[in-house]
Amino acid sequence: MFVISCPYCGARDQSEFSYGGEAHIARPEWREDMSDAEWADFVFMRSNPKGVLAERWVHSAGCRRFFNMLRNTATDEILAVYKIGETAPQVQAKLPATPCGEAPIGSGNDAVKVMQPGEAE
């Protein structure tokens, strides 16, 4: 459970919020000639990165507002919260990107949980 700062209500427990999927995926305007692929890209395809993802959340138990959030999916670190309609701020993910510094793809379980000789604190 993490703490989310609702842009209206301030810091609240995650249990008050619902997830709204990836942000900044605009619904395409209706066109007769829109291809299946173009539409499917909107309906089904999401980026699913291990790292910083712009996502939508809604403060469902509180003010019921949707907002955007930049979250590092590998660490749950929340890098920014901004209102709908605003552009995502430029952020620098905390280093290391993951607690164990594990690879950008794959599970973190195999990573060494202890520091290696010469590793900076």
């Binding site: 619902s18 709204g20 619904r27 939508r56 809604v58 469902s60 019921r64 507002r65 949707f66 709908i84 309609g85």
Partner: peptide
Amino acid sequence: AKLEDYLQTEWP
């Protein structure tokens, strides 16, 4: 929730 979603994010 879904209708609010469209109103707030797609059709403000």
